[in-house]
């Protein structure tokens, strides 16, 4: 699995185990997805298709199930006893909730950027190359190049190049969030998931992250949960509006923001409720 070719040219990585060669489905496709926590019906019959190489923002009032939906994409609910999921979720045409689907390679396809940055308890450079390392990349130089490249990509290189060996926890929150992004990119994902990834950051850091998303979207499929409408307006290509566990409307940013079909959507984007 010699994936790590020279830096600075990020290839569109190939999925490791492509189920069908002629896959024409959208990158992520959700079919009749239902999710229950204990007996509460949290996600109600979600159907959506997230297109390749674009930014999709999931918006909606808090408690509507945005984050829960995002976490179904890389099966982070696996560890909770009381969560039941029915329906199908295809990533590259592979049903990730099928019985025999192996979870680590699904997760490898997706980088997750959590609400608060969570650096692993190791040095800056080790954080970035953690993913490649566990996926089998060896060699000091190679790993260093990966780190350099990814830190460049998130604009962190110049800030940290002199202290790559110091603990990641010493960085500021904004820097840590970018480090987490670099760490996610280093496993060469196809998809980036962001769970209110800028909400804990100061305005300048969140602007940096937003710009990063915009620059990354021609290579990656990006799905963001966001609480701020303005952010969605600034960066989204597609918008999904959720309300009380249901997907109310899904469309291009232009269509959802300027010509919403549904009354609830209209109210929400005009600030009628939050």
């Amino acid at each position: 699995m010699e994936l790590m070719t020279p830096p600075l040219i990020v290839k569109q990585p190939k999925p490791i185990e492509k189920e069908t060669a002629d896959c024409h489905k959208p990158h992520i496709e959700v079919e009749n997805l239902n999710l229950y926590i204990q007996n509460n019906h949290i996600l109600k019959n979600i159907n959506m298709a997230i297109p390749d190489k674009s930014i999709t923002c999931i918006i909606g009032p808090s408690g509507c199930g945005k984050t829960t939906l995002l976490r179904t994409f890389n099966r982070l609910h696996d560890d909770s006893v009381d969560v039941k999921i029915t329906g199908k979720l295809f990533v590259d045409c592979e049903d990730i909730y099928a019985k025999d689907t192996e979870v680590t390679h699904i997760r490898k396809k997706m980088g997750l950027l959590a609400q608060r940055p969570c650096s692993l308890p190791m040095s800056i450079i080790d954080n970035v190359v953690y993913g490649p390392r566990i996926h089998g990349v060896r060699g000091k130089r190679k790993l260093y190049e990966i780190a350099r490249h990814q830190l460049h990509a998130v604009g962190l290189w110049d800030e940290v190049k002199d202290r790559l060996k110091s603990p990641a926890s010493k960085l500021s929150i904004g820097q840590q969030q970018r480090l987490c992004l670099a760490r996610g990119l280093a496993v060469e994902p196809e998809i980036i998931l962001g769970d209110e990834a800028t909400s804990a950051l100061d305005p300048i850091s969140s602007k940096t992250i937003e710009e990063l998303f915009l620059s990354l979207k021609d290579k990656y499929t990006i799905v963001l949960v966001t609480h701020t409408l303005r952010q969605a307006k600034r960066i989204a290509d597609y918008v999904a509006f959720m309300y009380l566990g249901e997907l109310i409307e899904f469309g291009t940013a232009d269509q959802v923001f300027n010509h919403p079909k549904h009354k609830l959507t209209k109210e929400y984007i005009s600030g009628g409720f939050s």
């Binding site: 890389n74 982070l76 560890d79 680590t104 390679h105 997760r107 490898k108 997706m110 980088g111 997750l112 959590a114 608060r116 969570c118 692993l120 308890p121 953690y130 993913g131 566990i134 996926h135 987490c180 760490r183 996610g184 496993v187 998931l193």
Partner: peptide, 12 residues
């Protein structure tokens, strides 16, 4: 979050 961060990088 630490567990999720690690697992979402594809760690077993």
């Amino acid at each position: 979050e630490l567990i999720e961060a690690t697992k979402s990088l594809g760690a077993t």
